[in-house]
Design a protein around this nucleic acid. Structure first.
Lengths: 282, 282
DNA sequence: AAAAATTATGAAATAAAATTTCATTTTTCC
DNA sequence: GGAAAAATGAAATTTTATTTCATAATTTTT
């Protein structure tokens, strides 16, 4: 949370002297980040220890740490804001807005991810007998992309964007299989059922979805990707990009776990495409 | 200017020991803002005065001031430095790196885009009789996603990720049709041919590719998406995400151009999915 | 290739800044 | 009104940063 807001919020829990400090800071925060504790104390007409106590009351380690927080709050207004696209925006404006809110979503998504669970997922994936990716609509694209990536790893991988195929595949799954179910809303009935079916058949079910959704409840491991779809004009935008970034993370984790020899192999896969391309001039 | 970029820029004007400091800082800037000058010196295996001199060389008043700048740069979302995934990275680290470099790529991509051309593309798209999206490999996913989006607009749209289908479709195209060809490298022979075929048959060909590639030369309009794929472990990562963001931009431009009544329609499309979903509790 | 000049570096000393301790003052509550 | 609690600041201490200066490394000149 922005520390300036925090100061404003806690203004009434502060003592009289501490409030003097708060006021000086709020009135010209940018001066304060270049002041020593002595200078600030003098300006607020109180003693240095009071400033120190003030800082700790705001859950910082001390004055220098407080200044760091303050500096961050002042850092020219967060660039990746979720600005809404407006009816009258020019191409320039809506382009900027969409890119910015996409970046903001990625930032949010990263925060919602738990590295421990990513690690666990990578564990499970590296040991899987078979990997299946299921998604519908926009999430089908993510599943498709995941297949494309994991296919290069030379592991048995499939993707389905068809409800019936998903069901059949889920029913045929067994211990050692990993099923990754992708859904932003986590409320698509058929996908939740598929997750449940796969789990009943002893597959490890990894969900890529929003925290606390019905789908999340059915999964062995939930990789939460929480993004707001505010800016979207009735179609999934940020969510699928965050999901794709997560796929990249999983794929990267996979290759790292497999070691350098494995990566040489990946290079070969890539090089195999060369003949299908025009040469670079240089 | 972002101090991290500045450090990266001035890396070669620094002395040997100072460069050690720079490297430690670049590798984990967020640790540094909580370190004392002594701790940082120790980590870089150099002396404290060297750290101090380093700070001054970057036009800061000293170490505490430098930390302030650093804190501000970090607050601004992403360190712009393309940090490479390392063999020994923990899940936490590689997750952060991938998300960060994805965001950096989006930033880059946005800079390489020309709003005038986006506007022109939207023009062409809104007037198209038929829209086709072609891609292969990772770009096929982008084409797939584009179809998914434009399909909602109730316009004739197809996507092919099969070379033969693409060729046939290109040959059958005519004036008023728009063909969007997606390829990061812009060097995939068959795609370049398809673009050329479509153009010969009077379709408007829009290329989503890197500036100056063979594909770019065949297109009526080139939407340049220049990103570096440095961080990638032999598979397309940032490029396709930037392409997807561009698809969002085009789709958004399309809906804006079509006016508010059209957007009501989109809402209906979205609402039509409701019965397939579990209700929200609240 | 040696000598001189320049530049880079760190140990130690110094200075600055922040924090802790503790005695005093103020406020609160009965 | 007075005991208890909380707030406050002076001084001492500790931590941190900076300066000074001697030495080492590098570059330039001869």
């Amino acid at each position: 949370m922005n520390i300036l807001e925090k100061i404003a919020n806690e203004l009434d829990t502060l003592s009289k002297s501490e409030r003097k400090v708060a006021e000086v800071i709020l009135s010209s925060p940018s001066t304060v980040i270049h002041s020593s504790i002595a200078a600030l104390a003098k300006q607020a007409n109180i003693s240095e220890p009071t400033v120190n106590r003030f800082c700790r009351r705001l859950d910082t380690k001390g004055y220098p740490d407080f200044k760091l927080h303050l500096a961050q709050s002042l850092a020219n207004g967060t660039p990746y804001v979720n600005r809404h696209v407006d009816e009258n925006d020019s191409a320039d404006e809506y382009t900027a807005k969409i890119f910015e809110s996409t970046m903001a979503s990625l930032e949010l998504a990263r925060k919602s991810l738990d590295p421990t669970l990513i690690n666990r997922s990578v564990d499970v994936l590296t040991q899987a007998n078979k990997i299946s990716f299921f998604g519908l609509g926009a999430s089908a694209i993510v599943a498709h992309d995941a297949q494309n990536k994991f296919f290069r790893f030379n592991v048995p991988v499939v993707y389905f964007d068809d409800i019936l195929m998903q069901r059949m595949s889920a029913i045929n799954s067994r211990q050692g299989d990993v099923v990754i179910v992708i859904s932003h809303t986590g409320r698509t009935k058929s996908l939740v059922e598929v997750a449940s079916l796969a789990k009943e058949n002893d597959a490890t079910v990894i969900g890529i979805t929003t925290t606390g959704t019905p789908l999340a409840k059915e999964c062995s491991i939930v990789l939460s990707v929480d993004v707001s779809e505010d800016t979207d004009l009735y179609m999934p935008m940020s969510s699928r990009i965050a999901q794709l970034a997560l796929v990249d993370v999983l794929a990267t984790g996979f290759t790292l776990r497999r070691g350098s020899k494995f990566r040489d192999n990946l290079k070969k896969v890539k090089d195999s495409l060369r003949s299908s391309r025009f040469d670079r001039k240089e």
